[in-house]
Design a protein around this nucleic acid. Structure first.
Lengths: 228, 228
DNA sequence: TTATGAACGGTACTCAGTACCATTCCGGTG
DNA sequence: CACCGGAATGGTACTGAGTACCGTTCATAA
């Protein structure tokens, strides 16, 4: 008699039943029964019915936290981009499982909300990391941290969803490209080595944009992100 | 005997009990009892226990949808910024109620998740509106829509949270400023009226930034948002 | 007055999640 | 081998949210 750890059997049974009858139409009793274990055992392995579908978000969050804590990047945004890359890789490693979960979350509002809440925790982590990194506790720096975290997470979600829908043959390349896009939105401060005469660039262009709209961007380009 | 619509009494009773004993320690029976109505009546007025705290997110969402549908703005981002301003005003109109809710959501994970899920619905609405507006269904346009929606929502949340914590004396001015910041992140396309010779501007500046990082921004500035 | 429909209250049910207790299984120790 | 101790398991019973259904009350209009 093989005993694939009960935990595995529970997850298999759960996904199978969710596919057959739908999430709400499946009770925990059903899952336990099909897995051939008692109801109590189910709740020993998974804190809740939803947890069968999102088993390792907690572990992932810690992993990301560690990665950020030990990261050595030139900018906060680079560190966070690197960390969010880890999240994507985790999903990719799950392969088909991630896609089955996606199909479920697309249909069941409760699961979608749960997923969103998890992502929000990443975003919060990023925001705090960036704000902390910048040191600067002014209101505008804080807003900037918020915008950066939101952008990184949005870019990640964008690529992830594309992959989950089977629209992205190479999500890793896409996420890297998307992160470049994000980085380009937030011109960083000039590093000390760049403040010499060597780093000078002159650009001339023409635009119909309102000057008021353009000013903040230009100010940051010239003064660095602590400006304003 | 005054009968303030029962619904109001239920909400009052709920908030009072949540403050006294905490959210989880309060049952729906408790709320109904204090409001002087039956348990059934509670669920007639509010779909769930959480709903007492977030009574009109649904209505708000529709209101925003209407606003977007009938909006006449030069750019999608301007329309969305205007719409999200409505959300902020709604919170401000709630006054102290919004602050009590914030205190609750700060403590109770389930409520925080619920709030986050609501905000995500706004973001989704914005993303679809922007993507639709742009027409352009390329991958990079889609990513851009995602980033814009995320930025607008993040900026709104930032100002809202500041106000909820009592850190913002003039949130309306702050949200306008924050939206300008967001707009400045995403240089828009030049409108037809601006393509004439009259709108020409020449800017020269010096930067230590890597050229690769700068290029996408510049390209968009020159070619408009459909570029890439 | 009666008719009608909306709001209400009560009962009974399902199901998620918790608490507790008894049992079994398994490896180590005497 | 007999015994022990812990870990995994299963069962029972409970709380509380949410649903379904039914009978009653109450206001208003005819």
């Amino acid at each position: 008699m093989s005993k694939p750890a009960a935990r595995t059997r529970l997850a298999d049974a759960a996904f199978a039943l969710f596919d057959e009858r739908g999430y709400e139409q499946t009770t925990v009793d059903d899952i336990a029964e099909r897995a051939g274990v008692g109801r109590t055992t189910f709740f020993r392995h998974y804190r809740s019915k939803e947890d069968v579908i999102f088993p390792d978000h907690d572990r992932m969050l810690e992993q990301i936290q560690d990665r950020l804590a030990t990261s050595s990047h030139a900018t906060a945004l680079a560190a966070v981009s690197d960390a969010v890359r880890l999240v994507l890789l985790h999903y990719l490693a799950e392969g088909d499982l991630a896609r089955r979960r996606y199909r479920l979350t697309s249909k069941v509002a409760a699961l979608r909300d749960r997923e969103i809440a998890s992502v929000a925790r990443y975003q919060r982590l990023f925001r705090e990391f960036i704000a902390n990194w910048m040191g600067d506790s002014t209101e505008s720096a804080s807003l900037r941290a918020e915008l950066m975290a939101a952008a990184v997470v949005a870019a990640h979600n964008h690529v992830l969803r594309r992959w989950l829908r089977g629209e992205s043959p190479d999500p890793v390349a896409e996420v890297d490209e998307a992160m470049r896009e994000v980085l380009s939105l937030f011109p960083g401060p000039r590093s000390p080595s760049e403040t010499g005469d060597g780093g000078t660039t002159v650009v001339a262009f023409r635009t119909g944009q309102d000057l008021d709209l353009l000013l903040p961007s230009l100010r940051r380009l010239v003064e660095g992100q602590t400006g304003q």
